[in-house]
Design a protein around this nucleic acid. Structure first.
Length: 301
DNA sequence: AACGCGGACAACCGCCACTAC
DNA sequence: AGTAGTGGCGGTTGTCCGCGT
């Protein structure tokens, strides 16, 4: 079925490009370069706006574009990069020669997002999904926050505490942990040591998998000794514990995301003594001087 | 064969940052 | 310093196409 060509109010054509239009655009750019995109359509004889020409060229016609199915290596690279960069498709695309940001974005939205969800991971945070059990999510948050106020109690201890308070069947079943996760987040194929890429997951997973029964009692005892007598509700109401926040808030508007990023940047910039689990600092370690990692961070900021 | 549905992806839209003046 | 023009980016939409009924 042929799509009926649509034109905007200025008479410029919109919608899919025809092979003839493609040829005109390619011929013109090969002969003259694109120059000013705004001026290009008139010079080339195309009834399109400059922006449409630029998108068509950059996303489809450019000779260095590699089309076709994403390889397993590319797929894993995208996942790893997304766990570091988030929805910075343009930045991610710079690490995949021949792939466009648009192509990667589409691939993420149609394939990888689902794949992560099927593995029980939140595609936004790359952490185990919590959306299907708010109660558990809140409990995690309470315990993590509690750990933050316990002196010298790091995040792994907090998770051990959490684990010690939950039946194993609940942890495994609800959070959807499985053995594939470790392999899934192996960053070795992009030259990043697995310790760099994995910590955001290890913080959750490793304490659970490598947990020793005797440590349960040890940390539970520590928890009880230090804050065990504290009523959680009253602790929250008296600001002893921070208020609960969603671990994976639903956000769709660009403005919201940007606002959030600004807040995160501001927080990280100003709060040098942060103990929050959510901040970048927790994912960094002494290995972070890896050149590739630096490159990624530089792109982020 | 006709139809509906959902996945895939090309293209568009709106906003933002940068630059020149 | 303010403004207009331009290109880049990310979110979203619209259409095609394959598949099942």
């Amino acid at each position: 079925m042929m799509r009926t060509p649509s034109n905007d109010e200025s008479g410029l054509k919109k919608g899919p490009w025809s092979p003839e239009e493609d040829k005109i655009l390619v011929d013109h750019i090969q002969k003259h370069g694109h120059g000013s995109w705004r001026a290009l359509p008139k010079l080339a004889g195309l009834n399109r706006c400059g922006k449409s020409c630029r998108l068509r060229w950059n996303n489809y016609l450019r000779p260095d574009i590699r089309r076709g199915k994403f390889s397993d290596e590319e797929e894993q690279l995208i996942i790893n990069l997304h766990s570091v960069l988030g929805n910075k498709w343009a930045s991610i695309a710079t690490h995949l020669p021949g792939r466009t940001d648009n192509e990667i974005k589409n691939f993420w939205n149609t394939h990888l997002k689902k794949k992560l969800m099927q593995m029980g991971l939140d595609p936004v945070t790359h952490r185990p999904r919590t959306d299907h059990l708010d109660l558990l999510s809140n409990l995690q948050q309470i315990i993590l926050n509690a750990a933050n106020i316990v002196s010298n109690c790091d995040i792994n201890n907090a998770l051990r505490l959490q684990y010690s308070l939950l039946p194993q069947s609940l942890v495994n079943g609800v959070l959807g942990f499985n053995n594939n996760i470790q392999n899934f987040y192996d960053g070795s194929n992009i030259g990043i040591s697995s310790q760099i890429i994995q910590p955001n997951l290890q913080n959750f997973e490793a304490p659970l998998q490598q947990f020793l029964p005797q440590e349960c009692d040890e940390y539970t005892q520590k928890f009880d000794e230090q804050i065990g007598n504290t009523n959680v509700d009253s602790a929250i109401s008296t600001n002893l514990l921070p208020k609960l926040v969603s671990i994976s808030p639903q956000r769709s508007a660009t403005a919201k995301v940007r606002e959030e990023n600004m807040m995160i940047n501001e927080k990280e910039c100003c709060n040098t003594s942060s103990t929050s689990f959510e901040t970048w600092g927790d994912f960094m370690n002494e290995d972070a001087n890896d050149a590739y990692w630096k490159d990624i961070i530089e792109q982020q900021y």
